[in-house]
């Protein structure tokens, strides 16, 4: 995009001709672009926060699930040991 005499010229393909955009001055466009940049930064920051928040929640549940699974394995081994001991005693 280029500015020329207060009107906006959109970059054209290789030919070098520009299409003139009527009705908007340079300041308006710059202001709009600045607002869009702020909104884009906010959205990018929001996405980071969301990824962290959702990641933490599901990581916590997964870690606790793994802890329970390991406890389950340990209890099964303990039950097996107790059963063997009972069999030896009887």
């Amino acid at each position: 995009m280029a500015f020329h005499n207060g009107s906006i010229l959109l970059a054209a393909p290789a030919g070098g001709d520009y299409e003139k955009v009527e009705g908007r001055d340079r300041e308006t466009i710059e202001c709009q672009r600045a607002c869009e940049a702020v909104a884009a930064d906010k959205t990018a920051s929001d996405y980071d926060h969301i990824v962290w928040a959702y990641g933490v929640i599901w990581a916590l549940f997964c870690v606790y699930g793994i802890m329970l699974w390991r406890r389950s394995e340990r209890l099964s081994a303990d039950v097996a040991t107790l059963t063997r001991k009972l069999e030896r005693m009887s």
Binding site: S45, D46, H49, W52, A53, V56, I57, L60, F61, Y64
Partner: peptide
């Protein structure tokens, strides 16, 4: 299980608050 859910609340809350 409360500790797991509570940790989720206490981490996601400040993330949301920060933003």
């Amino acid at each position: 299980v409360l500790l797991v859910a509570g940790l989720g609340v206490l981490i996601t809350g400040p993330i949301w608050g920060h933003a």
